[in-house]
Write a protein that binds this DNA or RNA. Structure first.
Length: 126
DNA sequence: ACGATGACGTTAT
DNA sequence: TATAACGCCATCG
């Protein structure tokens, strides 16, 4: 069932994905394509999602803050309800789903690592 | 090494 | 707006 088998040392590419996802602040969400683009991977949105698939639900990574470009959770039978968990967690952070099970990306979309929601101070890193 | 798959995205109908 | 098909690239058998 395509289980992760063993992931002792993921590729550096995945490490970047995980690191970026960890930077998503609570109450906000990012899309797979956005993550990919921020990493310099314009068309590899799939790999971003695939990387998150390898992450355990109890991982330190806020994987639940990543949704697709349509602003909705990607429901898949392979996740066996982890998708529900994702929605539940997002709602816990104050994110509201509309009648179409989608969220307002215009309102919750993560601006990026260079634009924290508090201080729009670009490139103020180190 | 090869073929098939997939937590996606974009464009066309 | 919803549905369908194609493209992209890493991972799996």
């Amino acid at each position: 069932m395509r289980r992760p088998a063993q992931v002792p040392s993921p590729s550096p590419r995945y490490a970047q994905i995980y690191a970026l996802v960890c930077q998503i602040p609570p109450g906000q969400v990012a899309t797979y394509g956005q993550i990919a683009q921020l990493l310099g991977l314009p068309s590899q949105a799939r790999q971003v999602g695939y990387a998150l698939f390898r992450v355990a639900p109890d991982s330190e990574i806020p994987w639940h803050r990543v949704v697709n470009a349509q602003g909705e959770i990607s429901y898949a039978p392979q996740r066996q309800g982890n998708d529900e968990l994702q929605r539940w967690r997002l709602e816990s952070e104050g994110i509201i789903f509309d009648g179409a099970d989608r969220i307002n990306l215009k309102k919750y979309r993560w601006p990026g690592p260079l634009a924290p929601e508090k201080s729009p101070r670009a490139q103020s890193k180190a």
